[in-house]
Simulated scan of single mutants.
Amino acid sequence: MSGAGARDRDPLGRPRNARPRDEFGRPLPKGTPGVARVPDDYAPSAGRALADAAAYLDEGRPFHAHEVLEARWKTGPERERPLWQGLAQICVGLTHLQRGNARGAAVLLGRGATRVSEYAAGEPHPGPPDLAEAVRVARCLADRPPDDPADAIGRVAVVLKSG
């Protein structure tokens, strides 16, 4: 496909979104300066992904934390995929909180909690993070989003560092 509606693709044909993003992960018009993104070829270890995601959350950047966790799910062992997808969904839920979309936040926080819970039920996990606490915090935030998104982001950052 070519033309104005064509999607950005990597050399293997996988879709990529090269559009710049604002600090909340919202796409900006092409050619507009945006904030730095997680590189497409980033392939972190589990420990590096958790540390980097927690660091982004400490900076108030859950969209970027989601990109880190998404990179791990795409490059890590297949059996861990639900874990990393769930943690990434929790961070997308936080992104929705930042953007003022409480309903979208609740849906994604709940989905992330479910996916992490399903993974935790079937896989031994030495930690960090404390998966039961990740599920508890995500479900609590889904049920009662705080007025201040920074509070929710901070709570998830603490969980990613727990073990």
Rank of each mutant, 00 (worst) to 15 (best):
M1Q: 12
S2H: 08
D10G: 00
L12K: 09
L12R: 14
R16K: 08
A18Q: 11
R19L: 06
E23L: 13
F24S: 04
F24V: 08
L28A: 10
L28E: 12
K30S: 13
G34P: 04
G34T: 03
G34W: 07
V35S: 04
A36C: 02
R37K: 03
V38G: 05
A46W: 10
G47M: 02
G47K: 01
L50P: 04
L50Y: 09
A51I: 07
A53F: 00
A55E: 04
D58V: 01
G60Y: 12
F63I: 01
E67V: 03
E70P: 12
A71C: 01
K74S: 07
Q85H: 06
L87S: 00
V92C: 01
V92T: 09
G93S: 00
L94F: 05
H96G: 01
N101D: 15
N101Q: 13
N101K: 02
A102D: 15
A105C: 08
A106G: 15
V107N: 09
A113Q: 10
T114V: 06
R115S: 08
V116M: 02
A121M: 00
H125K: 02
H125S: 13
P126W: 04
G127Q: 12
P128N: 07
D130R: 04
A138F: 11
C140L: 11
L141S: 07
L141W: 08
R144E: 06
P145D: 06
P145I: 01
D147K: 10
V156Y: 08
V156M: 05
